[in-house]
Amino acid sequence: MADKIFSIVTLTIAGIFLINSRLFAEKSGTQAVSSAFFPRIIIYALIFSSLILLVSSFLKKSKQQGEGAKGASIAFLRHHWRVPFMFAWFMIYLILMPILGFFPSTVLFLFVGYLVLNISFLKKKLLIYIPLSLILTFVIQFIFENELQVILP
C-alpha cells in the first residue's frame, strides 16, 4: 500500500513539474537547449521509475493490505503518539515565535517538550525542567545574539 501511495505521489509531483516546465520550454537565441531540457530528462525518468514501482506494487502480494495496514497505522500512532505531537508542537512553536518572541516561546516549547517526552512523570522532575528550560533558552539566546550576531525573532 505504501509503495502505491508513494508512486502516485511522485507521479503527481512529476506531472505538476512537467506542466510547469512549459513556461520556459522555448530556447532563446543564445541557448543550445531550452531551460526545460535538463528538468524534463529528470521528470521523464521519474515518471518511468514511478510507473515501474506502481505496477510492481500491484503485482506484489502485500502482507499488510486494506484493513490490516490501516490497523497497523492506528496501532503505530497509538503507541508512538509523541512523534506527531512533537511535530505539531514544533510547528506551533514556529508560529508562536514571531508573535511571542524567541525567549517566552522557546521556554514554553522546551518545558512542554521535556514533560511530554518523559515516559515516567515525576513531580520532582518539574523542579528540574523549569530551570533547565529557562537556562537553556538564555544560553542559546546569548550564543546566537552575542556570539553569532543573529537577530532572533
Partner: peptide
C-alpha cells in the same frame, strides 16, 4: 535522557536554519 536532548536539539537546529539568511 532523550527526553531532554530531543527538544533541546530541535531548538538548536531551528535556530541554525534561521541563522542561514535570518529568514523563517
Amino acid at each position: 535522557p532523550m527526553a531532554v536532548l530531543v527538544p533541546s536539539i530541535i531548538v538548536f537546529s531551528c535556530l541554525g536554519a534561521f541563522a542561514l539568511n535570518n529568514q523563517m
